[in-house]
Design a protein around this nucleic acid. Structure first.
Lengths: 348, 348
DNA sequence: GGCCTTGATTGAAACGTTTTAAACTTTCGT
DNA sequence: ACGAAAGTTTAAAACGTTTCAATCAAGGCC
């Protein structure tokens, strides 16, 4: 033990195993991959050799050879948003169950970075990607032209309805607004998200539908365009509260914006729900401990991740002849309204 | 366009580029890697060829050849915990800045799964890993023996103090308890985390130190052992509240357990801070909107991620002769006490 | 015009696997 | 005993890069 170089970093390879087991690399490969046709004796020898050398197969080399990496990419706009990590959990469970490793990436709600991530993932030869989009449709086209396996999750560019698993956003928003109306609200405002994304536009549509059906006026100043980030919720909230004729209820289109909105409310000393009701998309662990406890629309996050991963697995299967069949390939999940203390009848 | 197989999935390779550019693959490789010594003319030809073919280098093949993947693994016990995703953000920023792609994995606070993840990452030949440990020291030894680049982050098995970036947990806990004492509390309980992890034992130690220094009794029944999960916070909370002589203040050792604790409080109709004060480790975006607004210990999450990634980069550098130098290689960051409304003087 | 030097270009050998086809065994029917 | 058939084992050719060493072209110097 004197001549070892300090920086030795040699990996133990199949050849080492083969040598120790007095066997060819082909045989080693065969036992690793569980091929039958290897005698019990050699199998044993190989297994022992692997154990004593603590051999770990080089997945890089294997991937290069077989052309698949058993790795998938998952791009979300914000890892610190519990909604996305919860669906990530669903994805992960289903992925590992099928021998895939997901790699989570963060686009920061930035189309530029999203494109960059897609390029990187592509270069890393992931077998497919799950995408909670931040961009408009351009990217999608580029990839789909290459028949690259991709499944949209939660949000997708408006106009595309393929390979996606999403919540029934218009239905959920519609039900939520109807609930507010049933409480007696008429001056209902909305803090919307990015309108070029399905989550943004669909939730707005649900709002519109419910309002129109109740013959309620949708005032221009009650529509506030946010961007799903905390800061925009705060800004939009202040705008609404400053109005001469402020709304009695506010529908916020995601959890982060709701958080901003609540800050705006408390800074403005505007009691909720006494003076203004708040109803928010996205339930989260903390919602029930909020002050006040938040009425939310809970999406089936874990299920969403699971379903998306399943769809991706289906698409990635090399033996797919089903591409021409043009099944719609869209899974729509139902959301659930969780009524708590942030909503009440107006002027009660 | 009639003879194309439906399942054609041919990647465009360096050879294709070389052929189109009338050049050898070596030249293509040279221009891709920005080596000098390629004429302007050929450089141009190659770049054009790459563009028209929309060539993306195969990182798998490259990795196999050069023996590095420019990928690192990051294992956290719970992706849905905002603390961990915030440090992940720091890691990510620093990693991408240096050309590394982090892959996030979830051990679910399960040593078994953590071991499995480490094996997988190792087989995937990541260049290093960042680990928020769930296991005791065994794993660490195995890896360190192979000189595998690893940096512990936030939490590490007790007894190990190498290659880690952590918060000054004992200091932070000590200050927090001193603050409670200064408010006049004497019956102070703790909901601790896993004691085989540094975050668990160090925070307990800080608590002990402050109590002893103030000559306050540490009653057995005021110590509750949790496991950093929501459920355990709830359970321990109920235990404490049921005591004949309940504490006037509770120190909860992480955000998830605090959430459980708050549920226990509200179910038991125990007003906070009137009857019992709550002080929690881990600040998070929602803490200030909690009911009541939570007094917390805020760790520098983003900074933590950044520093850890930096340390890993240092360790991964192949030209490291500094291993013998045996520098302690531990970064300790200061936390900050954020006083809000969940703490008050007793019986006020 | 020969001879060196310098710089640009390329052929071919790796990297650690999988896989095909060929080369060995053995068994067995005749 | 002989050959066919069946069952094991292996040599060698990929996979798409990088890189070393060798080739080639072009000046520069006497």
């Amino acid at each position: 033990m004197g001549d070892r170089r300090a920086t030795e970093k040699k990996m133990v390879t199949m050849h080492d195993v083969a040598r120790l087991a007095n066997v060819s690399v082909a045989t080693v490969s065969a036992v690793i991959n569980g091929k039958n046709g290897v005698s019990a004796k050699l199998t044993m020898q190989v297994k022992e050799a692997m154990a004593t050398l603590d051999y770990h197969p080089d997945l890089i080399a294997r991937s290069l050879k077989i052309g698949r990496t058993h790795t998938i990419g998952m791009i979300v706009p914000d890892v610190t948003n519990p909604f996305h990590t919860e669906v990530m959990r669903g994805v992960e469970d289903e992925a590992r169950l099928n021998g895939y490793s997901p790699m989570l990436c963060n686009s920061n709600e930035d189309p530029e970075q999203e494109r960059h991530l897609l390029d990187t993932l592509f270069s890393q030869r992931v077998d497919g990607v799950l995408l909670a989009a931040s961009d408009s449709s351009a990217v999608y086209d580029r990839l789909t032209r290459r028949r690259f396996p991709i499944v949209f999750i939660d949000r997708l560019p408006v106009g595309h309805k393929q390979n996606a698993v999403v919540t029934d956003n218009v239905g959920a928003a519609y039900d939520a607004i109807k609930y507010l109306i049933s409480l007696g609200h008429e001056r209902i405002a909305i803090i919307a998200g990015h309108l070029h994304l399905s989550t943004g536009s669909d939730r707005l549509e649900g709002y519109r539908k419910a309002m129109q059906e109740a013959h309620l006026l949708i005032r221009d100043e009650y529509f506030q365009g946010g961007d799903f980030q905390l800061e925009s919720g705060y800004r939009c909230g202040l705008q609404l509260l400053r109005l001469a004729d402020p709304p009695t209820a506010i529908f916020s289109c995601n959890n982060k914006m709701t958080l901003g909105l609540m800050r705006a409310l408390s800074e403005s000393q505007m009691p909720c729900p006494e003076r203004v009701s708040v109803l928010s998309f996205d339930d989260f662990e903390w919602a029930a401990n909020f002050s006040p406890k938040l009425t939310t629309i809970a999406q089936p996050t874990h299920e969403m991740g699971k379903q998306a991963m399943r769809m991706l697995l289906r698409i990635m299967r090399p033996d797919r002849e089903d591409l021409g069949v043009s099944e719609e390939n869209v899974v729509v999940l139902k959301a659930e309204l969780r009524i708590r203390d942030s909503t009440a009848s107006p002027r009660s």
